[in-house]
């Protein structure tokens, strides 16, 4: 798969896909999208980069081990639920704030933190699997 065309295109494709995955993540909640599908898109972006340029550049690029990323995502998701304890509502209750930034109203919520957690769990675990499989292929 390491043709010249693919190797040239892959970095651009990967960065576009990661960007798009963040868009899909933020678009979630009331419209199609969210953490799971966003994480899948990001993971496939990294997988494409791995197929084109080899696994070690990917591992260098993401800096942390994919499983550690998944672990952080899980922590974030659990933490999003625990915030409820400070406002006297049950575990995992969605809490919203609507700050206005430069005249634009932002809808921020604990649901979003949870979704980012899901995004990272999916990204980490799928990337971990994909990279392991891509590595095995070259033996």
């Amino acid at each position: 798969m390491r043709t010249l065309i693919f190797r040239t295109v892959a970095p651009y494709l990967t960065s576009l896909m990661v960007l798009y995955s963040v868009f899909v993540l933020l678009r979630g909640h009331n419209e199609p999208g969210g953490g799971f599908i966003g994480g899948l898109i990001a993971a496939s972006a990294l997988a494409i980069y791995g197929i084109a340029c080899g696994v070690s550049p990917v591992r260098r690029a993401i800096r942390f081990h994919p499983m550690a990323i998944a672990g952080f995502g899980l922590f974030l998701a659990a933490f999003a639920g625990v915030i409820s304890i400070f406002v006297d509502v049950p575990f995992l209750t969605g809490l919203w704030i609507y700050p206005v930034l430069f005249g634009v109203e932002l809808k921020l919520s604990t649901t979003l933190i949870f979704d980012i957690g899901v995004y990272l769990v999916v990204l980490g675990s799928i990337t971990s699997t994909a990279l392991a499989l891509e590595e095995r292929e070259r033996d």
Binding site: H65, M67, A68, A70, G71, F72, G73, L74, F75, A77, A78, F79, G81, V82, F91
Partner: peptide
């Protein structure tokens, strides 16, 4: 909560 949080902390300290 504790199981998930401490489990994920362990996962980050592989």
């Amino acid at each position: 909560i504790l199981g998930f949080m401490f489990g994920s902390l362990c996962l980050m300290q592989r």
